[in-house]
Design a protein around this nucleic acid. Structure first.
Length: 534
DNA sequence: TCAAAGTCCC
């Protein structure tokens, strides 16, 4: 069998992912003494990679006597990074640098930079960046886009944007890199602005662009913008792209357009697990656990394996609908299939069991889970608060302080709510100190909870102190302050505050009126109370 | 066919 025949054999086998075939062809190559033929080896290495037999791929590369063909090295580098084998890629790059006969080219660096990004090795990435400036490879559009991507993956968004701004040649992929960079940094509005700029610069978005910009609309809950992009750019062809279609399902689902989400979902010919997850999440947000379970059964019937996202979404829907049976069904599925529960699954299970009053089951899940994440403690504390077991909430909070897990804004909000229910002023003060230490004094939600705690404990001075410091006073904070005055018998102060609140056009609600009337009744101010009724 | 960019769950 000659080289041409073997090459065509390799080509026809490339999609088969059959290891047996790969080994057979490998054997034929060795028998013919063709193990140094570059074209054959490249093809064979790729075949082994597609079979995920990395050792054999390495073996083929290693046994080539004089691998002086750079495209071979570049190909293996690319294969490594495609398979997330970033350390191997950097090792190979190191060996390439040591080879006196070979020099890396613009085709080498994209893979190397991707490996740096994947490993978070920004120091090495920076070193390469400097080298690229010196050698001029940084002028290559793919190389510089890869630099942008590398910095973004390492969370160095400023550096990423700087490289992008300094690029003098751009293509769709480099725009996509920077748009996704803003999206990943949580700046969805900026991502959409860049999308506008990209269009103004005369570039047509492709499916990658659309995936990111639709997701940006989804995160902003900007239905109008999402619809516009859908109508203007998502032509028939894009519906076949599972990324674009999932992003659309997610966007319509998050914006509450369930019918539209369903329509796109049904039109998607090949549904990926993310498509299913997005559709399930849409029903989950509505608390429609019945539809979630139905979808779960359909996906199972179509041979799609659920991910942890699928399972936690369905459990959350059962929690929202308070359908204990639906949640227990999922819990059973996880145990039967010996699936590894993650923090999302466990916290949604705990939430479900508390919501349905099965405190024992919630405690069981909590006991068995890894508690290195603040969220696992938070769900437990807020769970006890929702069932009214404030002492247990405080005791879990104390347990948490024994570990190295630091409480966050959610922890403080829940635990302060427990304190205000118990009128536990001393405990509340202690938590206040801790909030100051944790530098959460600028967090509006935490400060609102603190205000409520002091108000409910009748500590007027402390309440006023917090109230004064609030940067933005909303209806709830005004009401808390009025309540504090009222419960302390300072009805006139309460009334004064009520008038101040009206003057700056904050509209009172039933709770406010109740607080004002209660203040009047405590002080015997019948006349003032009657006035408020009008 | 030697390179870069994408979606979902506390």
């Amino acid at each position: 069998m000659d080289t041409v025949k073997l090459l065509s054999l390799l080509r026809t086998s490339s999609g088969s992912k059959s290891l047996t075939r790969a080994k057979l062809i490998h054997q034929k190559i060795v028998i013919q003494g063709l193990q140094n033929n570059i074209a054959l080896c490249k093809s064979l290495i790729n075949l082994y990679f597609s079979c995920q037999n990395y050792d054999s791929a390495k073996l083929v590369f290693r046994t080539i006597e004089n691998p002086l063909d750079l495209s071979l090295w570049n190909g293996v580098l690319a294969a490594y990074t495609k398979n997330y084998m970033f350390s191997e890629a950097l090792e190979l790059f190191d060996r390439l640098l040591q080879n006196p006969f070979l020099k890396p080219t613009s085709f080498t660096y994209p893979s190397v930079l991707k490996a740096c990004g994947g490993l978070g090795r920004v120091g090495y990435g920076k070193f390469i960046h400097t080298h690229l400036i010196k050698t001029g490879f940084g002028l290559d559009v793919v190389v510089s886009s890869s630099l942008v991507g590398m910095y973004a993956k390492c969370d160095k968004f400023d550096s990423a944007i700087k490289v992008f701004d300094e690029m003098f040649e751009r293509d769709v992929a480099s725009w996509n890199t920077v748009i996704s960079c803003y999206y990943q940094d949580g700046q969805a509005e900026k991502a959409l602005k860049l999308f506008e700029k990209m269009r103004e610069s005369g570039f047509e978005p492709n499916s990658v662009t659309l995936t990111t910009v639709i997701s940006s609309c989804s995160r902003l809950l900007d239905l109008e913008r999402g619809k516009e992009i859908h109508k203007e750019y998502v032509k028939d062809g894009f519906v076949f792209d599972s990324y674009v279609s999932s992003a659309l399902v997610d966007m319509y689902g998050k914006c509450g357009c369930l019918e539209m989400a369903r329509e796109i979902f049904e039109q998607t010919p090949v549904k990926s697990v993310v498509s299913w997850n997005s559709m399930i999440a849409a029903y989950s947000s509505k608390g429609d656990s019945k539809s979630c379970i139905e979808l779960f059964r359909s996906m199972h019937a179509e041979g799609i394996k659920p991910t942890v996202t699928t399972l936690s979404s369905i459990i959350m829907s059962s929690s929202r609908s308070a359908q204990l049976e639906h949640g227990k069904f999922m819990h059973g599925y996880i145990i039967r299939n010996r699936m590894q529960s993650d923090i999302f699954i466990n916290s949604s299970l705990i939430d479900l069991y508390f919501k349905c009053g099965h405190v024992g089951s919630a405690e069981n899940v909590f006991d068995k889970m890894v508690k290195t994440n603040v969220v696992s403690w938070n769900v437990m504390i807020s769970g006890y608060v929702t069932v009214g077991d404030y002492f247990k909430a405080l005791s879990i909070y104390e347990d948490m302080k024994e570990t190295s897990v630091k409480p966050d804004a959610v922890t403080f909000t829940s635990i302060l709510s427990a304190c205000s229910q118990l009128a536990a002023l001393e405990k509340g003060k202690e938590i206040h100190k801790y909030i100051v230490e944790s530098e959460l004094e600028s967090n509006e939600i935490v400060m609102g909870a603190l205000l409520d705690m002091y108000a409910k404990c009748g500590a007027v001075d402390q309440t006023f102190n917090i109230f004064q410091k609030l940067p933005e006073k909303d209806l709830v904070s005004w009401t808390s302050m009025i309540t504090a005055y009222g419960s302390h018998g300072q009805a006139l102060e309460a009334l004064k505050l009520f008038h101040e609140m009206l003057q700056i056009n904050v509209k009172p609600d039933n709770v406010t009126f109740l607080a004002v009337l209660s203040a009047c009744s405590h002080a015997g101010l019948v006349y003032e109370g009657t006035l408020k009724q009008q």
